[in-house]
């Protein structure tokens, strides 16, 4: 990621998690043995199953490792956005979509942001409109 950029187009790996103890540990162990580094992760769950969503340095390697270990995966286009590092930063960011047709399906944060930067991972629809608005905004 470049220092002067604040918006990133990312490919997220979504993993189906059946409702079984240890299934999450299995998935993360699989990623670890494939030497895939997790940059961001979140779990969405219902009482019946869950979906693990991860941003990695190599989505293709993550998918290959998980599928061969018996997981069902899907690649999803998401957006990474740097949040201005001051009080109200997230509110300012979300204000960008005010009055547009963009909706936020979910968002989660990077695991280890560098000092002074916090990256949010967002599933936004429609994505192209969202990217345009984010790139045109002067948040930083």
């Amino acid at each position: 990621m470049f220092e002067d950029e604040h918006v990133f187009e990312l490919r997220q790996v979504s993993v189906f998690l059946e409702n079984r103890p240890g299934v999450l540990a299995d998935a993360t162990r699989t990623l670890a043995s494939a030497e895939v580094n997790l940059r961001a992760a979140m779990i969405a769950e219902t009482e019946r199953f869950g979906i693990l969503r991860v941003i990695t340095d190599s989505p293709a390697a993550a998918v290959a490792a998980l599928e061969s270990a018996g997981f069902r995966t899907k690649l999803t286009d998401v957006v990474g956005v740097e949040v201005p590092d001051h009080a109200g930063g997230l509110a300012e960011l979300l204000d960008v979509f005010e009055g547009s047709s963009v909706s936020i399906e979910y968002l989660y944060a990077e695991l280890a942001g560098r000092l002074g930067r916090a990256l949010l991972i967002m599933k936004l629809t429609p994505r192209d409109e969202a990217l345009k608005l984010l790139r045109e905004a002067s948040l930083y």
Partner: peptide, 9 residues
């Protein structure tokens, strides 16, 4: 499989 919980439910 869909990334959307609602679809799977």
């Amino acid at each position: 499989f869909s990334d959307d919980l609602g679809d799977v439910l």
